[in-house]
């Protein structure tokens, strides 16, 4: 009885790391720009396909190809920002949230259907020579690629944390999260900070997607589910805290995998949503708008 629980716990933690890294991307974008980009899951999906095709067509190892995926996503992020989101900077916050929500929702629909037409609805995943390797620890199996993905997620988030804490640009981002008007008066070009945050968020989504395509599988319709998951993790983790968001991702991953163990796989998708609705009803105040400090 205990062994399968431990096994599910391990799977939950490993997938939770990917929830964390994807949600940090969303949280960064929302915290800085107040853009609620509900096409985040579709951006993740695109990152997944980028990794998949790099491997399938050009035989680029998925982990080696990660920087390429990030680069592609950076380019995409800049294009999407300039094309769709830059014009909304001037709106008051309520309008900004609503309009970005609507644009993101249209964008998600377009990306999903473009992917569907280009690449069909098939589930895809990367199978490398080492995909089946497993690390066994006291009877619990840790698939190698998932462990590697988790470690990469952790390292990337740690680096991001250091960037935000230590560098001038990082501090400018944190200042903008708190009070963009005061930040402007520090000679910070808020428009540039917005662009940077949006691009970072897109890159993190893409990276998460590429990692999903290695240890799990991807398909064009995965976007909505991932958007919801990242939204929920963002709300649970609280804005402005990278590690808090990462931990929230792991909690959700564990909750999902234990639920599917006890209640059956069909219910794993609901855990996150029910958790979110409970938070919404029981503790609505603060979570979303929570600021640093």
């Amino acid at each position: 009885m205990l062994a399968p629980i431990a096994q599910n716990l391990a799977f939950g933690i490993l997938v939770g790391g990917l929830y964390g890294i994807a949600a940090v991307g969303l949280s960064l974008v929302f915290g800085v720009t107040r853009f609620l980009n509900v096409s985040h899951g579709e951006l993740l999906m695109l990152g997944g396909y980028a990794g998949f095709w790099l491997y399938t067509l050009y035989h680029v190892d998925p982990f080696v190809g990660l920087p390429i995926v990030v680069l592609l996503m950076v380019v995409l992020g800049v294009i999407l920002y300039k094309l769709l989101f830059a014009g909304m900077v001037k709106y008051p916050e309520e309008t900004k949230v609503k309009n970005t929500l609507l644009v993101g929702f249209g964008l998600g629909l377009v990306l999903q259907n473009v992917a569907l037409r280009l690449w069909t609805a098939d589930d895809r995943g990367i199978t490398t020579t080492y995909s089946s390797q497993v690390i066994s620890l006291v009877g619990v199996r840790f698939p190698l690629v998932r462990v590697a993905s988790f470690v990469i997620a952790l390292v990337v988030l740690f680096a991001l944390h250091q960037f935000l804490q230590r560098t001038y640009t990082g501090k400018a981002i944190r200042a903008t999260v708190q009070d963009w008007e005061a930040a402007t008066l520090m000679a910070i070009d808020v428009q540039k900070v917005y662009l940077l945050a949006f691009v970072l968020g897109t890159a993190l989504a893409g990276m998460a997607g590429a990692l999903v395509s290695v240890g799990y599988s991807i398909q064009p319709n995965m976007g909505l589910e991932w958007t919801l998951i990242t939204l929920i993790v963002m709300v649970l983790g609280g804005l402005g805290s990278i590690m808090g968001t990462f931990v929230a991702g792991i909690i959700l991953g564990v909750a999902q995998s234990l639920t599917s163990f006890w209640l059956g796989g069909a219910y794993r998708d609901i855990v996150a949503l029910v958790l979110f609705l409970l938070v919404l009803i029981l503790r609505p105040q603060g979570l979303f708008g929570a600021k640093e400090g």
Binding site: L36, E93, V97, K98, L101, L228, L277, F288, G289
Partner: peptide, 10 residues
């Protein structure tokens, strides 16, 4: 803000 939209979506 966004709570209502996300809540109904969920």
């Amino acid at each position: 803000g966004a709570y209502f939209a996300i809540g109904t979506l969920a």
